[in-house]
Simulated assay, not measured.
Amino acid sequence: MGRRKKGNPVHGWLIVDKPAGVTSTQVVGKVRWALDAQKAGHAGTLDPDATGVLAVALGEATKTVPFVTDALKCYRFRVTWGAETTTDDASGSVMQTSDCRHDAAALEAALDAFRGPIMQVPPQVSAVKVDGERAYDLAREGIEMDLAARELFVDRLDVIAQDADGAELEMVCGKGGYVRAIARDLGRALGCLGHVAWLRRTWSGPFTAEDAVSLSDVETLARTPELHARLRPLELALQGMTELPVSETAATRLRHGNPGDVLQGAEYGETCWASHLGQAVAVGTYRAGTIHPSRVFQT
């Protein structure tokens, strides 16, 4: 007989407005404790000094994390000109400085190279794995790494405000983007050097800051119905896919990992999600009147 999991079978998303000074993992741990949940994870790490939307998945919602991680995200941040740091943000030590400055036209012109599909080298202090170890662990040991460039899609990068010492920018990008690397590379392109002064994620996939609860409220409302009422349904993470309703019989088959008949069609080979009475049953591939599950939900 298997050991019973600690906690309760809580399913859904809790959107937290992460404060500066805590890690994403710490926030997940606090949410799991506050909801007495068996299982929790998050969709996209925020740096300890960053603030904003951290989508925490509970229970069966953890199976939908990849769909939020792959979605577009929006960041507001300020780049301070004149210095490059070891971490590419204000928490690091200054490595080199520059007295060079630029005008507004030069900044606008430089941004063109940072839009669309770009190649980006992650910061030395990042979660990228190097020979099985995290880059941030190696960086703390004083090891300098030659990190490979990675592809990133930047949907939008706009200037919100600027002055002689820096600029506030807004970026919408895909999976795997490092705002700190954007600040570093933009400073180099302008010849003035730069690093992130502050960073806030305003939305992530379907989740926005308006949906979020503060970490202090998570602590205050811990183990209360009020906090459970702030949970969002796991189905929100599936919004970008076609929904295919199924009968109760098909839902049972799908939950057992078998193909199930759907009540309407889709494109052959399309990834869809099956629902019964509005609840997610499975995510899978549509083939000639049936959906073949790759993920099933036991809620």
Rank of each mutant, 00 (worst) to 15 (best):
R156W: 14
L215E: 02
A222I: 11
S294L: 11
S214H: 06
V125A: 13
I15L: 02
E219M: 10
A251K: 11
L147Q: 00
W81L: 15
C173H: 07
N258I: 05
R101K: 10
P123L: 12
A61Y: 08
A161G: 05
R232Q: 14
L236K: 14
V218T: 06
F297E: 01
A34K: 01
A61M: 09
S91N: 09
M119R: 14
A110G: 12
C74Y: 11
L138P: 09
G240P: 13
G257I: 08
A282I: 03
E60M: 02
A250R: 06
L152N: 00
A90M: 12
L231C: 12
Q298Y: 08
M1W: 09
A37M: 00
D146R: 12
A161R: 11
T64P: 00
P48N: 03
V65A: 00
A164D: 13
T85K: 07
T62N: 01
D137C: 09
A109G: 13
H102T: 15
R156T: 05
T290D: 10
A282F: 03
T208H: 11
H11A: 01
K175P: 03
L193I: 07
G166V: 09
T285Q: 04
S216K: 14
R134I: 05
F207K: 02
L254A: 07
E210Q: 13
V94H: 13
V128K: 11
G116D: 11
